[in-house]
Design a protein around this nucleic acid. Structure first.
Lengths: 338, 338
DNA sequence: CCTGGCACTCACCGTGTTCGAGTGCCAGTC
DNA sequence: GACTGGCACTCGAACACGGTGAGTGCCAGG
């Protein structure tokens, strides 16, 4: 087990390296932090830390930098979450308060997170999985063509075109609309399939084909939209990544464009509280030199989606975690109000 | 006026520089293109071209590179638009054909353009300005709270919450919904205001406040959504920009996040045909080292939106223009079908 | 267990040198 | 007059070289 002081040394190394972006040596450490011991002692501690794999030297006769394992220990044991100051909290709230609709809430959240953390922000749209159906609307576009509009309690709207096997009368349409809504309005997505199962039976034979088509399109939409959408921002902050540019940021940009990758990434975050994935802990190869800080957010007690930031492993973890947590909290409030 | 051969020299310089990314000298030029003259002659021509401001040398004793003005001449007079090959056209069509809804069309278009040109692609959502209203839907969320859903003929859906000054009955709601649709369905956005002006008068005094509120929200939505949305992709291609990374790509990334900037950029493209803005021709400062190739697209004869790519001034103009034009054409077809 | 001292390593920086691609100019040729 | 070959010149890129200093590991002594 590592002694108390060695942990302090590790903490100091992480803090200094995050600040200066340069390998930190024993002398500089003793000068900037009053550890109460000499550089030589620190050197011994550093050697021990290196044996354990918490730090490494880029080359002989250079200072040490933390490894992924070192950051992990730092995050888990050595640092807390830095709370936002009162002015910061006010700024967050003020910035989010002006949002007019769901898109706007998400857009503002992304910008805010990116600015606050000076990193790349990723915000998932509130999930449909736990959402309920607020309303289903059916519109006749043409005799044998309908538009299906699904509205959720989080304010999200999805639409699909439906090509009917046979023309569908206006009265049948009104009938279907009414029956559909009386069954599914207010219900959870997951409950919908069993609730509409027997609906075609209530209709004349000639309309059943169309009803079935509409229903299967509806179910499809419910499933499909569980592949959630997300918004990203602050990619310009990638330029502050390091010096060895193209090689590092290329795969990151590529990963960021693959929504599937990002969704999986956010999906891995476990409840509750802020989750941090450091460097190689990220499954996706392109993100091996980045850390992902994410957290769930939601309007009520339940989290309906996640948000987070992607940045270099060399990041200010306490501050980032604090910002992410604070933003999630306020977005939750905003969603609850609307 | 420049002689025929000097123009050929300029063309050769542009082509070589685009290919090699390195300043091109007189000797290399005569070797790669059979101009029928010696390097010395080419040198004289180059000196003339430099005097006119079409090419420049990064430093003394280096080859020449084209200036913005040089590219401009190249695009205007020396090169055409390179048409897509048949297989390429088939690939484009195949890729776009699978789209299920408007979002998907736009998303696929972005990916396609980015892949084809190996640059950053920008696609504007079909504009509402020239669109017509397909349907307006009103839903009661709470006694004094409505949701307004607007559906356009391009398949776009927008929703807004409306807080009513007074509770609004179910019958009044149905009445308003019916009257509203009979007036505005199929009409152009721009015509809507005058069409609904006198609508409150048809209602009881107690409901008029709510009706007015709904109407003003509707009009607001129409206007607001003219601030169009867009989608970008292929940012990873920015890494192939040049060697002096961070400085160049930072402002580009920033500009790309400012939708307003991009919309203005696309807006500047004039009909008809492909528009090319080179380097400093772009108003936005961050894009001074990029060129923008854009074109309008639309379902019918009219262009309803624009799309384009952003890349280094050192780009393959004929190829890029060809790809942009071809994609726009096929997207137009897809939109017309749906 | 901590400390001061010491020898060692090695990236970094500035200098100097060479190399060669590319240039401008000029005199000569068709 | 236009083109060409030749020539001197410029200057960035690449490489070699040595000095500097931060940082290290190790060891003997408190």
């Amino acid at each position: 087990m590592l002694s108390e002081r060695r942990l302090q040394v590790l903490r100091a190394i992480v803090q200094d390296y995050v600040g200066t972006e340069e390998p930190v040596g024993s002398k500089a450490l003793t000068e900037r932090h009053n550890l109460g011991v000499s550089p030589a002692t620190v050197r011994n501690d550093m050697a021990a830390l290196e044996d354990e794999g918490f730090i490494a030297q880029p080359h002989t006769s250079a200072g040490r930098i933390p490894t992924d394992k070192g950051y992990r220990l730092f995050v888990d044991k050595l640092a807390g979450v830095k709370p936002m100051t009162a002015p910061e909290r006010r700024a967050i709230q003020g910035f989010l308060d002006g949002a007019v609709d769901l898109d706007d809430v998400v857009a503002r959240t992304v910008r805010l997170l990116a600015q606050l953390t000076r990193q790349v922000a990723v915000v998932q749209y509130p999930s449909l999985t736990r959402s309920t159906v607020r309303h289903v609307e059916l519109l006749a576009m043409a005799p044998a063509r309908l538009m299906l509009v699904l509205i959720t309690d989080t304010g999200r709207v999805e639409q699909r075109m439906v090509d009917c096997p046979a023309p569908f009368g206006e009265t049948s349409l009104a009938d279907l609309r009414a029956r559909l809504n009386s069954r599914v309005a207010g219900r959870r997505f997951t409950d919908v399939p069993s609730l509409v199962e027997d609906l075609p039976e209530a209709f004349e034979a000639e309309d059943r084909g169309t009803v079935s088509t509409v229903l299967s399109t509806l179910l499809e939409t419910l499933v499909e939209e569980n592949e959630e959408r997300l918004m990203i921002g602050g990619t310009a902050n990638l330029t502050r990544f390091g010096h060895d540019f193209p090689l590092v940021i290329r795969p990151v940009l590529e990963a960021l464009e693959e929504q599937v990758v990002l969704l999986k990434l956010l999906g891995e975050a476990q409840e509750p509280g802020v989750t941090v994935r450091i460097g190689h802990e990220n499954a996706h190869e392109g993100l091996n030199s980045t850390s992902v800080v994410s957290v769930g957010y939601g309007s009520g007690g339940e989290a309906v989606a996640k948000l987070g930031v992607v940045g270099p492993t060399r990041m200010d973890y306490p501050g980032t975690m604090g910002a992410v947590r604070a933003v999630a909290r306020y977005v939750g409030q905003i969603l609850a109000e609307s």
